Amino acid sequence: MTLEQPRGAVLAEEGRLPPERVALVDLLDRLLAGGVVVSGDLVLSIADIDLVRISVRALIMSVRGPDEE
């Protein structure tokens, strides 16, 4: 990779990225159409003693209305 060539162009040449640009809105639309699962854990501790543990799992996806095709 040279300094003149952007990273996206290098990834497209390697076949790991489509050659055309994808807008952020289009990418978000594709993700929400299929659904995205977000998960995470949060642990609060003092002196290596776990006091609180919170686990979060969320499914985020778009919902079609009755008039959409």
Rank of each mutant, 00 (worst) to 15 (best):
L17K: 04
S55V: 04
D29F: 11
V22Y: 03
D67G: 03
P19V: 06
I46F: 01
L42G: 03
A47T: 13
L28C: 07
V10L: 14
L42T: 02
V63Q: 15
A33K: 12
E13D: 15
V43S: 01
D29G: 08
V37R: 02
V25R: 14
A23V: 13
V10F: 12
I46R: 14
L44C: 10
D48I: 01
M1I: 04
R30H: 11
L3F: 01
L11P: 01
E20S: 09
I49E: 12
V36H: 10
R53E: 13
D29Q: 14
I60W: 07
G15M: 04
I60C: 05
R64N: 14
L17N: 02
I60P: 02
L51S: 05
E4L: 11
L17Q: 07
M61G: 12
S45G: 12
V38A: 05
V52D: 01
V43Q: 07
R64Y: 06
R21Q: 15
G34Q: 10
V43N: 02
R7S: 10
E14H: 11
R57C: 04
R57Q: 05
G34I: 03
R16F: 10
S62L: 13
R30E: 10
R16C: 08
L11E: 06
V52W: 02
A47C: 10
L27V: 04
D48Y: 04
G35P: 03
R16M: 13
L17G: 06
R21P: 10
A58N: 00
D48M: 07
D41V: 07
E20H: 13
M61E: 14
S39P: 00
R16Q: 14
V52T: 00
V43F: 00
R57K: 12
I60Q: 05
E14A: 15
D48W: 04
R64D: 04
